[in-house]
Design a protein around this nucleic acid. Sequence first.
DNA 1: GTGGGGATTTACT
DNA 2: GTAAATCCCCACA
Length: 187
Amino acid sequence: MLAGPVLDAAPRLLGATFTHGGVTVRLTEVEAYAGAEDPGSHAHRGMTQRTAVMFGPPGRLYVYFTYGMHFCCNVVCGPEGEASALLLRAGEVVDGVELARSRRPGSSDRDLARGPGRLCKAMGIERSDNGLDLAEHLQLAPRAGDVSAGPRVGLRLAAERPWRFWVTGDPTVSRYVAAKPRPTRSG
DNA sequence: GTGGGGATTTACT
DNA sequence: GTAAATCCCCACA
């Protein structure tokens, strides 16, 4: 049961607070990536320089760059060598709101960290934070509300696995958008 | 050394 | 709702 530990950790992370760059966020949405066996995970093709952090010990931050302009961050949750992690998809800014606003001008408070790329931007997370030890950044807390589960977002492989978890009814949870097929540039 | 794809967001219609 | 923006990473030769 490789997926076991990650899927178990997901509900516990919801409601927890994550502090970085002077901003504190209450996590409302996460997404599980369960090791090398998971076709949707970056770790699927084995350890590379980029995914090395995922294969390392739990409790560290895995940051990656995507679509040429956005960072996304994960919390490594599985034991060392398993490469399981939870993508932090959304949260509510509960402290450092002004700093978050300055990083995301034009955004409403509700949208400050509503989405993985937005969350990283609001918190000032970037490539240099890859591998960061989260021991003093993550604070588990009692969760207000129930947890829902559903399909993952944005993936073209194994997206149907119900490994996205969110706080039921929370307004800062991102809207589900199915992966869009990309047109080939060859035409 | 080169080519193709990606765990997204934003602006415009 | 649809389209565009844009760097990095990985696989192959």
